[in-house]
């Protein structure tokens, strides 16, 4: 770790001011991603602005009937908050599918959005990486790329965004509220993270100094027909190879509204509104779900070690919607693992 100074911020505007005043400062929430990257010398801030004392840990109702998650609420407190469990169980399920209980107790909701890719080359200072050092090249293209993107990648970078929580937030059409040197603004969730293009060093659209203050969930929570399915190399404490947040609103067997977002497949949580549109007005059957799945992967491109994700994503979409329809949400695909003795 490089040498740095620590400033515990007592108010949002003070935190922002401190960030703008230092050229190489970083906010720190739970530290579960930043401290790790600092130990690896991938992140080398010289000044840390501690957010933990900011009054942003509350989870409270909004006047429009939605729910506001303070940026400093922990992932664990969010997943197990009674209102989140009751009204947005898809979000609870996605959070609980990620990391470990200890990490979820530390990780903040704002930090979760900002976590960086788990691409092995991004972590390895000995290899070129356009995200870590722009212009050096991408070691994953032509290298080992089992965990990499099949959708929306570029010639510069094929990394994926690793969050589970963000996949559910994308499906639920969350709004991100931020505070910056020029005041407050809101960002639609699909506009928050970005595709790599020719600037893979930029994960998102936050401007310099901007601080996430809350995540605002809209009233509609799809609390009846939903599932977060996460497929990975082991069934706990591992990042997703492919994950699916599926949510339906049903009138009898007819789909009246649908949400679909994928994790582990792109540089950002991958919501596909065109595939959602294909579902609406259709019967909730495997055929319908297969058509939507085909639409999602229509433009997918695999590399040497991750092409399996294309078929996996298709099948995972169909299974997640089947679980949503049958009201049997399950994080793991293995029926045995989900049964309690």
């Amino acid at each position: 770790m490089n040498s740095f100074t620590y400033f515990p911020a007592a108010a949002v505007d003070l935190a922002v001011r401190e960030k703008v005043a230092h050229s190489n400062a970083a906010y720190i929430g739970g530290g579960t991603n930043l401290v790790d990257l600092m130990k690896e010398n991938v992140a080398r801030p010289t000044h840390l602005i501690g957010l933990k004392h900011l009054p942003l840990a509350a989870i409270e109702n909004t006047t429009d009937g939605g729910l506001r998650l303070g940026a400093l609420a922990t992932n664990a407190d969010t997943a197990w908050h009674p209102e989140v469990e009751r009204r947005y169980p898809l979000l609870s399920q996605a959070i609980l599918a990620g990391a470990s209980p200890q990490l979820r107790n530390m990780a903040t909701d704002g930090g979760n959005l900002m976590q960086r890719t788990r691409c092995y080359y991004f972590y390895d200072l000995a290899t070129p990486c356009n995200k870590r050092e722009p212009g050096t090249g991408c070691s994953a293209i032509g290298g080992y790329n089992r965990i990499h993107a099949i959708l929306g990648a570029s010639e510069q970078c094929i990394a994926t965004h690793p969050s589970d929580m963000c996949v559910a937030l994308a499906a639920l059409a969350t709004t991100v509220r931020v505070s910056g040197p020029n005041g407050e603004r809101t960002i639609r969730f699909e506009d928050f993270h970005r595709l790599p293009g020719d600037q893979p060093e930029r994960d998102n659209t936050l401007a310099d100094g901007e601080l996430i203050t809350s995540l605002d969930l809209p009233p509609k929570g799809f609390a009846t027909n939903y599932s977060y399915l996460k497929l990975r190399d082991r069934t706990s404490y591992a990042f997703a190879l492919v994950s699916v947040a599926a949510a339906l609103e049903l009138d009898g067997n007819t789909i009246t509204d649908a949400r679909l977002a994928l994790g582990g497949v792109a540089h950002k949580p991958w919501r596909d509104t065109a595939a959602e549109a294909l579902l609406i007005g259709q019967p909730a059957t495997a055929d319908t779900f297969r058509r939507a799945a085909a639409k999602v992967v229509a433009g997918a491109q695999g590399h040497a070690h991750n092409a399996f994700k294309i078929e996996l994503a298709k099948r995972a979409i169909v299974r997640a919607f089947k679980q949503a329809t049958e009201m049997t949400p399950a994080t793991d695909s293995n029926a045995f693992l989900n049964s309690n003795p």
Binding site: P8, I28, G31, V35, D36, S100, Q102, L103, N105, M106
Partner: peptide, 25 residues
């Protein structure tokens, strides 16, 4: 690096990984 849990301690009764937490915090 937060991957094994050997460093688990309790902060205000909640379990965390002490290897990823700065003491000043």
């Amino acid at each position: 690096h937060g991957q094994c849990g050997a460093c688990t301690v309790l902060i205000n009764g909640k379990r965390i990984n002490s290897c990823l937490s700065l003491a000043v915090m």
